[in-house]
Every structure is written in C-alpha cells, then in structure tokens.
Simulated assay, not measured.
Amino acid sequence: MNTYKGHRNGKRRASGRSTAAGRGKGKSRRKAAVFVENTYIKWGILILAVLTLALAVRGFLSHGGTYVNVDASEPDIDVQLLDVNPYSRPGIESNGITGIVIHYTANPGSTAQENRDYFNGLQYSQETSASSNFVVGLDGEIVQCVPTWEVAYASNDRNYDTVSIEVCHPDESGKFTDETYRSLVQLTAWLCVKFDLTADDVIRHYDVTGKNCPKYFVEHEDAW
C-alpha cells in the first residue's frame, strides 16, 4: 500500500512539474510574441518617420529651400468681381474647366488690389483686353476678379476651359515671395479638388503660347 501510494504521489509530483513547465513555456511564447509585435511596431514607426522626413525634405527642396505644406482647403478669398464689360469680364460662360494657368503680372511691386482695379478700369481706357479669375498679392492675399465659371482674358486659346491666376512679384526676377507662393499653392490645390484636376493640369502661360510667363518659372524649370 505504501509503495503504491508513494508511486501515486510521485506521479502527482511529476505531473505538477510538467504543468509548471508547460506554463513556463506558455509564458515564454507569449513574451516572444509580444516582443515580435513590439519590434514590428517600432520598425513601422521608424519607417513612417523616415518617409515623413523624406517628403518634408522633398517639399523643402522643391521651392528653393522654403518648405511648403500643401493645404487644399478653401483659402481666404476677397471677392471683388469686375463689372461685366467687353474688355475684362465679358460674362461668357466657360466650356468646363480642364486646367489652371499660372501667370505673373510683369509689373514688379504692384499689389493684388492694383491689378484688380487695372482690369476693371479697362472698360474705360479700352486699351486692351485683359483679366484673370484670381490675383495673388505680395502678402499672400487673394482677390477674385472673375467667377470660375466665366471666361477671363488671360490665357489666349485656353480662356474658355481654364481658370487663370495672376501672381504678384516684388522685383524684375519674377520670383514670388514665400507668402505669395504659399497662397498660390493652396488656391491651386483647392481649385484642383474643386474641378477634379491633377498636378498635370496646372500649367504656365508659357505652355500655352510660349510667352515668358510666369518669368521665374520659365527661366527656372526646376523650380516649377
């Protein structure tokens, strides 16, 4: 009897050790799984950080060292529509927008307001036909002159299917200020979303007629 009991007790003790060992292995497996999961998370965070940094550097270099964070939300627009007249706002409906054309004013130091007023005054001077849907100023202000669904006299053969943006610049180089550039990018991005356009649909006046406009971005292709 004693031998039998001892045998049973021995089995029990052996079984207890086996259970403890199994629990230990289970804990080890769980720890290993947690370690692997944490490692993947850490690597994922690291890769995301590297990609974010790479995109930031690309954005920084793309504008000559000035980082621009693209914001496609609707910008603050000062709507000052021109009077309907044959010289700057004919009141003709566009054929549907398929592109955005960027211009420069070719009038160093002039403001968005001054360019808007010049367009409106053409109905009286009648010296030429010219206008733009928007003008972006030296401090980043945006003035709207012609509705986006109407023709503006800015882009020659593309007047009827594009939105035109005139951009102010401080000097003869035609380079925009950082404030102007940021507003231009936001306005353009918002218009792309509004009309379901891509970056390829954003062009220079130069791409329509070969005119040196916008000057800085014609003479510095890498900046464009």
Rank of each mutant, 00 (worst) to 15 (best):
V135C: 04
Q186R: 11
Y153L: 11
A189V: 08
N85Q: 04
V167E: 04
E219R: 04
H205V: 14
W190G: 11
R182M: 09
S125T: 12
Y124N: 06
Y124I: 06
G65L: 05
Y181M: 15
W224F: 12
V151F: 01
Y40Q: 14
Q113I: 08
S132E: 08
P90E: 13
G26K: 15
I45P: 01
R89E: 03
Y67R: 15
A152Q: 04
S183C: 07
I165P: 04
V136F: 02
Q126E: 06
Y87R: 01
K175S: 12
N38A: 13
T209I: 07
E179Q: 15
E166F: 11
N159C: 09
T180D: 05
F176G: 02
N212I: 06
G210N: 06
K5M: 09
V146E: 01
V70D: 09
G109P: 07
S125L: 04
R30Y: 10
V163W: 01
A20M: 10
N159V: 04
G121D: 09
I92F: 07
Y153F: 12
D200S: 15
E150N: 03
D139V: 06
E37K: 15
G22W: 14
A223F: 08
C213F: 05
D78G: 05
E219N: 09
T52Y: 13
H169I: 00
D200G: 14
W224Y: 09
S155I: 02
L51H: 11
N85C: 01
A72E: 13
N120S: 00
T180C: 14
R58G: 14
N69D: 14
D78K: 09
D196M: 10
I165L: 10
H205G: 07
G64R: 08
L197S: 13
A14M: 07
F217V: 04
C192I: 03
E150G: 02
Q80I: 02
L48T: 15
K194H: 12
V36N: 09
D157I: 08
D117P: 00
S62E: 11
